[in-house]
Design a protein around this nucleic acid. Sequence first.
DNA 1: ATTGACCTTTACGTTAACGTAAACTAGTAT
DNA 2: ATACTAGTTTACGTTAACGTAAAGGTCAAT
Lengths: 131, 131
Amino acid sequence: MTTAHETYSISDLASEFDITTRTIRFYEDRGMLSPLRDGQKRIYSPADRTTLKLILRGKRIGLSLEESFEIIQLYHQSPDSRKQLNKVLQAIEKQKEIITEKKSAIQSMEKELQEVEGKIRSALNELDKTP
Amino acid sequence: MTTAHETYSISDLASEFDITTRTIRFYEDRGMLSPLRDGQKRIYSPADRTTLKLILRGKRIGLSLEESFEIIQLYHQSPDSRKQLNKVLQAIEKQKEIITEKKSAIQSMEKELQEVEGKIRSALNELDKTP
DNA sequence: ATTGACCTTTACGTTAACGTAAACTAGTAT
DNA sequence: ATACTAGTTTACGTTAACGTAAAGGTCAAT
């Protein structure tokens, strides 16, 4: 079974994720992407694409690039020693806490939005009763 | 039944939420807080405190101050006309979509973190088998 | 009356995360 | 040959969200 070995140009990724090429180069500057080169041109692998996806997903839930990068490094790394493995486990626990905190913030917000919605809807119902 | 009518100084709120007074004044500058005054001093009500809490919660899930403010205005407003009520309903739907999007981003991230954790744990188990 | 704790306004400085423009290159199309 | 399209580097500019003084007011306590 061979892998497709797909590649992407910088504008491929830019248009797919609706960002500018400047943004992608900026992430590279920050050490978060290291695409291959065809002469001068950057060639992105599926792994690069995944990295980019993770960065953008992190942003959407309020992670800084630095924080997203920490998580990404957890993926792209295969530690061997017990010591290394345990370090990674600790890092994962830390990230899970952060995520848990965000989850609860979102849940509160969702709950309150629904409360407000309920009030609005009953106000509308009142208006319907006695027009 | 009387309400306690509690008040807070700026540093009360700053220390409670672990932010600086500068931050609180900045939010006021942006029109998100409008505390009463005792002479020069700012006096914050429980409603102000709630507003601040909502701002900070918004931040934690990646909302800009502007976006948080939109949500806050949904709370602190009591519209009367059917037209107004429907507008608010639309705004709520919009916010719920945003929140839903963030929820799914968080869930993906949580899921993947647990996958990585699983791999690490089984790698540790392997090491335990043949030491 | 002076120290200290807290408050105020005003204003320039900083960081993250890009935006924007200039000047250049390399391949493709007419 | 020329023009177009997509890419490149370099570098100054911008916005959001505060940080960090500076200079001063107010009130209680020593």
